[in-house]
Structure formats: structure tokens, C-alpha cells
């Protein structure tokens, strides 16, 4: 005999309410993960097309500017020459000695008619001067002047290299000093 006991109600899954809650959470996570994945992909694709267009446009601009600059290579060459020359000139002029101020400083040591010789050397930065004062007292005055200029900071390392008295009473003095920034601006 055929049973007439037909159950049309969907059988409930076994398990507690707790496990049903977990399943609900997993379902939500699944949807969130899938939507996040798809949206990231969509945003990434949009970004890709934007970047590709921008990159292509920037490269076109770069090519255009490069061609324009190449057409001005003559100007660039001249500009480069001038700049390189100016750099060298600046270095050379910056290392020059101010000869005028060195001579002026030398002349301030003694009257011009005492001056017998000047020696200036850029490497040693020392100035050597030969002087011929007429008397010993003038020679003494000259040494005082040198000391005064040293005290004023116009020179340093002032040295009396030699002092000789000739038979005719002429005094020969050799002095040397290093002009300072104040004495050699």
C-alpha cells in the first residue's frame, strides 16, 4: 500500500540559531567581498583608462617640446658657451689679486722715492719690498709705520728680512708682509 503521508514543507536545516547566525554573517561577507572586488576592478579599469590617456597626452607633449627645443639647438649651444665661459671667468676673476691695493699699501709704508723694488707672488701671497731710506732714523720710522699698519690690520706677518748700512750712509731695508683683506680689499 502506498503511503499518503506526503511532507510538502521544506525540511529545516538541522542546527542551532547560533550556527544560523554564522551562516548569515558568511553570506553577508560573501556579498561584501564580491561587490568590493567588482567595484575595485571597475575603479581600477577607470583609473587605467584615465592614466593611459594622460600618459599618452603627456608623452605627445614631451615629444612636441623636444622637437621645439631641438629646433632651438643653436640658441642652446650659444647659451651653453656663454654660461661655461662665465663660470670660468667668475673663478679666474675671483682668484685675482687686487694689484692696485697691494701697491697702494706698499706705497703707504714709505715715500715713493725710497722704493727700490717690489715683489708680488700670488702663490706665496707675500709681498717683498726693498726700500732705501736715507738715514737710520728714517729706517726706524719705516719700521714704526710697518708696525702701525700691522696693528691696523692692513697687513700681517710683517718681517724685516734684512737691513744694511752702506759706506755712504745709505740704508737698504728688505721687508715682507702679507696684505690682509682690509689692506687688500
Amino acid at each position: 500500500m502506498v503511503s499518503s503521508n506526503v511532507n510538502l514543507i521544506r525540511p529545516k536545516a538541522p542546527g542551532s540559531a547560533f550556527s544560523k547566525g554564522i551562516v548569515d554573517h558568511i553570506r553577508k561577507i560573501g556579498w561584501v567581498a564580491l561587490i568590493a572586488f567588482l567595484m575595485s576592478g571597475a575603479i581600477g579599469l577607470a583609473g587605467y583608462f584615465f592614466l593611459r590617456t594622460a600618459l599618452s597626452s603627456a608623452k605627445r607633449e614631451e615629444t612636441r617640446l623636444s622637437q621645439q627645443i631641438r629646433s632651438l639647438s643653436q640658441v642652446e649651444g650659444l647659451y651653453t658657451i656663454i654660461n661655461s665661459r662665465l663660470t670660468i671667468l667668475s673663478r679666474v676673476l675671483g682668484s685675482e689679486k687686487n694689484i692696485n691695493s697691494i701697491i697702494e699699501l706698499t706705497e703707504s709704508v714709505s715715500p715713493e722715492d725710497w722704493l727700490a723694488g717690489i715683489s708680488i707672488d700670488s702663490d706665496s701671497v707675500r709681498v717683498a719690498v726693498k726700500l732705501t731710506p736715507r738715514t737710520i732714523s728714517e729706517a726706524s720710522q719705516l719700521v714704526s709705520t710697518l708696525l702701525g699698519l700691522t696693528r691696523e690690520g692692513k697687513m700681517n706677518k710683517a718681517t724685516l728680512d734684512s737691513l744694511t748700512l752702506d759706506a755712504d750712509g745709505m740704508v737698504n731695508i728688505s721687508v715682507s708682509f702679507v696684505p690682509t683683506e682690509r689692506g687688500n680689499p
Binding site: V23, R27, W31, F37
Partner: peptide
């Protein structure tokens, strides 16, 4: 009985 759970797990797997 666990179809919805399996679908969710498949979705998570695809996302990962």
C-alpha cells in the same frame, strides 16, 4: 540544506 552557505563561500573565494 547548505546551498546559501556554499554560494557565499564561492563568492568569498572568487573575491580573494
Amino acid at each position: 540544506t547548505n546551498s546559501s552557505l556554499l554560494v557565499s563561500l564561492v563568492m568569498i573565494s572568487i573575491a580573494i
